[in-house]
């Protein structure tokens, strides 16, 4: 089984590399606003959009204008998503007649989808109309991903330009990212998913007859709605037989494609990519994992191409891959272990021709341990958050890895755009530390890294740990926070820590035992999501603006090379060290204690 797991990982990385390189080169052409052969018809649509919006695509923006445009665009998007949810009962595209969404849930969901988090306090099939799913949520899946790509382009231009005040034009970047990259890839991928069995329709939900009727017991309620009890105080049970089941329908494939390609992660259904209508086959599962990493990996090559040195892109990709492989190996090994409590009961948990073995609670049999553990590592290394297995049911160490990958700041491939700009901020910090050690003014790609750049990099890196640790602490101190916890003890602490790590780092997955669709959690997590996104983007754009104004110096014999194994090791070390220094005390209270309790 271990051999199968690592063969799957090797195949995944091999196919990813083969696909990411051409995508990265293509993304560079999109970012450099060059004509793309064969897509002249899209250029006409692009120019029409600029004319309608009154935008001059040739005019550049300083970093502050770029940031304000980005914030206003995303702010208006948030208000739009909120309004649509609050009005959905009176709008078309609602065959189930679903009611309007409560104000606190609509607020949380609006911030969630705009910030590329896609944290879902609600259950999609029982809450959202088709119109809300398509126009509000899928629309923001495109725009939030395009926003991330735009910021990555802006930062790359900061490195590549010479004595310029402009870092590009936000409106051009977001238009071209959507029109040339996200839309075409999503159409291709959605058609592939439909071929695998993902549904795409506007039907009302269907009641179907079960092949085998199911008989089950359920507590009876009295006229007052309270459970009936017998003379001994035990609940009175009634026997029921279910002969039919309601199957939720909807335009799933069109949302599924961008959910993954845009590292958004919000599922059409509550079960997300564990649902057979979202992710029906092992092949669809393999390509879902690939699509999560496709653009983040491709952007490493985009970076190399736009700064004129592909070795720089390979170095960033190498650092990301090194962390990812180690993290994935830990999840694979942890989940393949027999659960000690079940082992004590004599239950067979060995891998065989008939079963995956290991810890199968919360996992789909069609995926088994290998594809579930790899998906968990992929979705949390990238800031996607789609799940094909329930992370809350992972072994303590298996569940700790997704938690840590988020806490590294979502820079191990990371979100679309945000992974690259996050890792480049760590690269700036790495050359600064190296400069301190050898007593030279730090340089990265010929740009001097000065006081302002390091201050902004420090803010960008420290925003998310502050939100995570403060949010977790406040939540555990107040009753509405503690009320949402399902499991007592260490795992309950992990549920809250995971929620804030996921929200502030814009991942969106959960230890889903936590009951988080309450006014308290909806507000607290919205604050973490918004500022975890935009309080990082602003200092990143400030660095881009600062770097753009500087001359690009030629490398000399004393310049530290930033494309070799030494720099990759330094970059990995900085990412891991910052993550460890921030989070080890919290991890010790959660998954580490839980592991020790389980194995004592």
């Amino acid at each position: 089984m271990a051999t199968q797991s690592f063969l799957l990982l090797a195949a995944f990385l091999g196919v990813l590399l083969a696909l990411a390189y051409p995508v990265g080169v293509y993304l560079a052409k999109v970012g450099e606003s060059t004509q793309i052969r064969g897509l002249g018809w899209l250029a006409k649509a692009e120019n029409l959009l600029y004319r309608l919006a009154g935008i001059s695509p040739e005019s550049g923006m300083g970093w502050k204008s770029y940031a304000i445009a980005l914030l206003v665009f995303n702010g208006i998007g948030t208000l739009f998503v909120y309004a649509l949810q609050r009005l959905q009962a009176w709008l078309p595209g609602n065959p189930q007649g679903l009611p309007n969404i409560s104000p606190d849930s609509a607020f949380n969901t609006a911030v969630s989808f705009v910030s590329n988090t896609n944290w879902q306090g609600y259950s999609g099939e029982s809450t959202m109309s088709y119109l809300s799913q398509m126009l509000a949520l899928t629309g923001q899946n495109f725009f939030s991903a395009a926003t991330g790509i735009a910021v990555a382009y802006a930062l790359i231009r900061g490195f590549s330009s010479r004595s310029s005040k402009s870092i590009g034009n936000f409106w051009v970047d977001i238009t071209r990212s959507t029109l040339y990259v996200l839309l075409p890839l999503s159409v291709i991928f959605a058609v592939f998913l439909m071929g695998q069995g993902v549904i795409q329709n506007f039907s009302a939900y269907k009641d179907v007859n079960l092949i085998d009727p199911i008989t089950y017991s359920q507590p009876k309620n009295g006229p007052d709605g309270q459970p009936l009890k017998d003379a001994n105080g035990n609940p009175v049970l009634g026997t029921l037989t279910a002969k039919t089941q309601t199957l939720a329908m909807g335009p799933v494939a069109s949302q599924e494609a961008i959910k993954l390609l845009g590292t958004n992660g919000g599922g059409f259904f509550n079960a997300n990519s564990a649902h057979p209508f979202e992710n029906p086959t092992p092949l669809s599962n393999f390509f879902q994992m690939l699509s999560i990493f496709l653009i983040p990996a491709g952007l490493c090559f985009t970076f190399g191409r736009m700064v004129g040195d592909m070795r720089q892109g390979w170095a960033v990709l190498g650092a990301m891959t090194a962390i990812f492989v180690v993290a994935t190996a830990v999840v694979l090994i942890a989940e393949q272990q027999a659960h000690p409590v079940l082992q004590a009961l004599g239950i067979d948990q060995a891998a065989s021709a008939l079963q995956s073995g290991g810890n199968m609670e919360g996992k789909e049999t069609r995926f088994g341990i290998s594809a579930s553990a790899l998906f968990a590592a992929v979705t949390t290394a990238a800031s996607c958050g789609a799940v094909n297995a329930m992370h809350d049911s992972f072994m303590p160490l298996g569940g700790m890895v997704p938690l840590v990958l988020m806490q590294f700041g979502e820079v191990v491939f990371g979100g679309v755009g945000s992974g690259l700009y996050g890792m480049l901020i760590f690269a700036v910090l790495a050359v600064f530390i190296a400069g301190l050690m050898i007593g030279r003014t730090p340089e990265y790609l010929g740009k001097k890294i000065q006081s302002f750049d390091i201050k902004m990099a420090s803010i960008a890196i420290l925003v998310t740990p502050t939100l995570v640790l403060a949010g977790t602490a406040i939540t555990l101190m107040v009753e509405p926070g503690r009320a949402g916890i399902l499991n007592p003890g260490a795992h309950g602490f992990s549920e809250v820590l995971y929620a804030f790590s996921s929200a502030a780092n814009n991942n969106g997955s959960a230890f889903a035992g936590l009951s988080a669709n309450t006014p308290f959690y909806n507000m607290m997590l919205a604050i973490a999501m918004w500022f975890g996104r935009f309080a990082v983007i602003v200092p990143v754009l400030a660095i881009a603006g600062s770097l753009a104004t500087k001359k690009r110096l030629e490398a000399t014999a004393g310049t530290m090379p930033t494309h070799g194994p030494l720099f990759i090791a330094l970059l990995v070390g900085v990412v891991v060290l910052v993550g460890v220094l921030n989070y080890v005390p919290a991890l010790a209270l959660g998954p580490i204690v839980e592991h020790l309790q389980l194995t004592k």
Binding site: I68, L71, T78, A110, V111, F531, A535, V538
Partner: peptide, 23 residues
Amino acid sequence: MDIVYIGAIVAFIVLSCAFAAGC
């Protein structure tokens, strides 16, 4: 309650823009 949450969204936007302006 809508006014509270719409106000919160507007406050998020204003705070973020102020952060950018004061960087």
